[in-house]
């Protein structure tokens, strides 16, 4: 069958899973700067599914698309180390403050400038856990979506056979191309970096990174075009500025509260027979148990 063009949507996120004591400021707020920036976990599951489709259909290409600040180019390099062919970084101050609707508009606008058969996203990102950008981008692209994907089992000219992971079961569906799928964490982990790819892509850079670098890599990148990470601004994708950032975001954050421990007057019970028995008797008498 004909080779497929696969786009993987990936996001760089603060590692909210490891908000340890050192990541909390004295006033109880989260010190985001202290959190490591990582490849969003379910986007790695998404990348793996894309690479498996590429393995199934020789000649296919996997292109990463990420939106974020300049340093999000790290996500693209990481993806290339693991087998992606190239990547695009959507970066512009005008994207800042976008909620999921504005973000999906930006992403869909960028995707529609590219050729694609399949768009693969992670189900959700761990900084917001909304799971909204994938379906909203699919709607804006006018293509069907399959969410909570555990495995793309089969690829042929008619489309994909996909297994979905639901709350208490599974569903198998057949989807035509083009389609957008979002991959669940129960899908296989992403393959590790491939040493050969690390050697090949470790100098891959965006234009901005090149300008900021102390050494001049431009010669090298001119000689080896695969080292160029494409960088797109709002103007490059021809997006409507009004539909981006704060003005394009219908949701507003009214208030943020840190979850701080409310010290509570707990009654301390000694672990001896007498005190445990009297606790149990109390619970029986006030009808909590029994």
């Amino acid at each position: 069958m004909k080779a497929l063009k696969i786009i993987v949507l990936a996001k760089q996120v603060p590692d909210t899973r490891n908000v340890g004591k050192d990541a909390m400021k004295a006033d109880g707020t989260v010190n985001r700067a202290a959190l490591e920036a990582i490849f969003n976990p379910e986007d790695l599951n998404a990348l793996e599914q894309a690479l498996r489709i590429k393995d199934m259909v020789p000649g296919s290409t996997v292109t990463l698309l990420t939106m974020g600040p300049g340093r999000a180019a790290e996500v693209i390099r990481e993806g290339m180390y693991r087998g992606a062919d190239n990547g695009y970084l959507l970066t512009d101050r005008k994207f800042a403050g976008s909620d999921t609707l504005a973000t999906s508009y930006a992403i869909a606008t960028a995707v529609s400038k590219m050729e694609y058969d399949i768009v693969v996203a992670g189900r959700q990102a761990i900084d917001g856990d909304t799971a909204q950008v994938g379906p909203q981008a699919a709607e804006k692209l006018g293509i069907p979506q399959v969410t909570y994907v555990e495995e793309v089992e089969k690829v042929d000219a008619k489309g994909l056979v996909i297994k979905r992971r639901l709350d208490n079961g599974m569903e198998r569906v057949k989807a035509p191309l083009p389609v957008l799928i979002t991959v669940h964490s129960s899908a296989p982990d992403c393959r590790p970096r491939i040493a050969k790819n690390v050697m090949k892509f470790k100098h891959a850079r965006t234009l901005t990174e090149l300008q900021d670098a102390t050494e001049d890599y431009s010669q090298m990148i001119n000689n080896r075009p695969y080292l160029k990470i494409n960088e797109w601004s709002v103007a490059d994708i021809g997006a409507d500025e009004e539909a981006l950032g704060l003005s394009g975001s219908p949701t507003k954050v009214k208030k943020i509260e840190n979850v701080v421990f409310k010290a509570n007057e707990a009654m301390v019970i000694q672990a001896n027979d007498k005190e445990i028995e009297s606790l149990i008797v109390e619970l029986i008498e006030n009808h909590t148990i029994g």
Binding site: T16, I126, G128, D129, P250, T251, V253, I256, N258
Partner: peptide, 16 residues
Amino acid sequence: PAFGGNIVATIINPGT
């Protein structure tokens, strides 16, 4: 909850 459960956010949609 947001940010891995470390904060609680109040969100509104005034205009839509």
